[in-house]
Design a protein around this nucleic acid. Structure first.
Length: 520
RNA sequence: GGCGGUGUAGCUCAGUCGGUUAGAGCGGCGGCUUCAUAAGCCGUAGGUCGGCAGUUCGAGUCUGCCCACCGCUACCA
């Protein structure tokens, strides 16, 4: 029985166009999905859009249009961008899909029947300008910060999910499963939230329609709609056919959510508690990413420095961009996106190291071996060392990907490429070919054979990270179908899979070097 | 304020259970080489491991205090 793998991106809130941060999270999930597929696991990759809630209603009101049309516009922008880029998601879910709304209502009713939802009257300070209740933080000198007016004391009744009943269980679960939330610092943060109880209580899951009607109606009270987070999180279940889809159990048991650090609390606290109330086990991993700054500044709508993923794809190619994102951001930390750093990374790793290795290997194969993978002569310790390193690298990549450390996986892969460059330098087949001493042809053949095998390993290991480039490389190695039957990590460690006699093609530069521009 | 994190070569960062001369990549500099994308390879950088004190035979690696920056505590990936 093959293993399963289920990965999700956050569902993107439809009040802005896709930017670098969205592209990063989706690239990570896409890479994980591709890796696990190549590892022979039944993989399901879900992304989508989160479309309910006040902010969308506000945007619609300000534009004089309907929330649905705002949601349609941005949801399409995300879906089309992701399709253009070529992400390998299996489904693009929308929280306004009728099926999703049905599932949300089913779950609400079930939790309600189980006594996990309570109707409570709430009295607080309501700001007419904000159209919401204020907390102390929203006020200064007794007035709303935004509107500088005194809020009114109002009563409102709402439904609350008795979330706090699950906190003890959640804390124990986090203690028992150190890799549930990773990197570890975010797990610690969540434990902190649970410990000091600052502000964390039961979760208000309703909004009266008099205030907000853009949401899913509560099945047990048509005067209310569901709080947007409660609705949104459930997409992760809807997407794989909850409650009775044939694959639901299989996928849910291997669920892995990729999120940004800004939405840690809903995913690390609300969601596990909700799942427990629903009667489901928690997800397997929550992978929390850091943020990208741009040229030293925070990514922000008001600064207008949001970087369009499509524009970057146009200029640099998506494989290169994605490589930079996954390589340069230590998983979990923040990092700075600069064009200078991007160009440096592309040139140093993709052009000089990998791309040039491909060029020189395939060029020499054409020149000294008639354009086919040569029949090797006897191998020595140098060849065995390369083969050994490929095997080690495959194992390291597997481990790193499973720990959600893409930067480390890539570091290992490029160390292999680096080692092959050095190996070539030591063997110097061009020199041997020139001197033509006894048996020179066999020696050159052995060297080129070894390099070609290494390129094959590199292409397989890179396939999840560079989905456009890896197939090109495999094609040049004369094995265009290699990915169809490949199994990572073991196949990347095989050293006999590229048969002598296989025709190779030199081709153009895989990643042309980018010359320094004075654009900024 | 509270909780947490970070501070290691010019830049980005690794540094497991404390132990010989503190590492990598990039950049810079010098040399070699020409199969290759002016790419590659070799050598080099002498950094008080934020500061002070302590524990120890011995601390970047543990303890305390201090300084700086950052995150969370408030539904922007």
């Amino acid at each position: 029985m093959s293993r399963a793998f289920y990965v999700t991106t956050p569902i993107y809130y439809v009040n802005a166009d896709p930017h670098l941060g969205h592209a990063y999270g989706t690239s990570l999930a896409d890479t994980l999905a591709r890796y696990h597929r190549l590892a022979g696991e039944e993989t399901y990759f879900l992304t989508g859009s989160d479309e309910h809630g006040e902010k969308i209603a506000e945007v619609a009101a300000s534009e004089g249009t309907t929330p649905q049309s705002v949601a349609d516009r941005y949801s399409n922008a995300f879906r089309e961008t992701w399709e253009t880029i070529g992400f390998s998601f299996d489904q693009f879910i929308r929280t306004t899909d009728p099926h999703h709304c049905d599932v949300v209502q089913t779950i609400l009713q079930r939790i309600y029947d189980a006594g996990q939802i309570e109707f409570r009257e709430y009295e607080g300070l309501y700001c007419v300008g904000c159209e919401r209740f204020l907390t102390e933080r929203d006020m200064e000198g007794g007035k709303c910060r935004d509107h500088e007016r005194e809020p009114e004391r109002q009563k409102e009744s709402n439904y609350f999910f008795k979330m706090s009943e699950h906190f003890e269980w959640l804390a124990e679960t986090l203690e028992a499963r150190p890799d549930l939330i990773r990197p570890e610092r975010y797990r610690n943060e969540v434990l902190g939230m649970l410990r000091d109880e600052s502000g964390l209580g039961d979760l208000c899951i309703s909004r009266p329609k008099t205030r907000l009607d853009w949401g899913i109606e509560l099945p047990f009270d048509s005067n209310y709609v569901c709080y947007v987070w409660f609705d949104a999180l459930i997409n992760y279940l809807t997407g794989i056919g909850y409650p009775d889809g044939p694959n639901f159990e299989k996928y849910w048991a291997s669920a892995e959510h990729v999120i940004g650090k800004d939405i840690l609390k809903p995913h690390a606290v609300f969601w596990p508690c909700m799942l427990r109330a629903i009667g489901l086990p928690p997800y397997r991993h929550l992978d929390v990413t850091g943020f990208w700054n741009v040229e030293g500044r925070k990514l922000s709508k008001s600064l207008g420095n949001a970087v369009s993923p499509l524009a970057l794809k146009e200029r640099f190619g998506f494989d290169a961009l994605r490589y930079f994102l996954l390589r340069d951001l230590a998983f979990g930390s923040d990092s700075d996106f600069t064009e200078a750093a991007l160009v440096r990374r592309i040139n140093a790793d993709l052009a000089n190291n990998l791309g040039n290795l491909v060029s020189r290997t395939l060029n020499m194969t054409a020149r000294y071996a008639g354009g086919t993978v040569p029949e090797p002569g006897p191998t020595g310790p140098d060849e065995q060392a390369i083969a050994q390193l490929a095997a080690t690298t495959a194992a390291q990549v597997d481990e790193s990907v499973r720990r959600c450390e893409p930067h480390h996986a890539l570091e290992c892969i490029f160390a292999l490429s680096d080692a092959v460059n050095r190996y070539l330098e030591e063997q110097a087949p061009w020199k041997i070919a020139k001197e033509q001493a006894d048996g020179w042809e066999k020696r050159v053949a052995t060297t080129l054979y070894t390099s070609c095998q290494a390129l094959r390993s590199l292409a397989l290991l890179l396939a999840p990270f560079l989905p456009e480039t890896a197939p090109v490389l495999l094609e040049r190695l004369g094995i265009p179908d290699a990915l169809e039957s490949a199994r990572l990590p073991d196949d990347a460690a095989r050293w006999d899979a590229l048969a002598p006699g296989t025709p190779t093609q030199k081709g153009a530069a895989l990643f042309p070097r980018i010359e320094i521009e004075k654009s900024n």
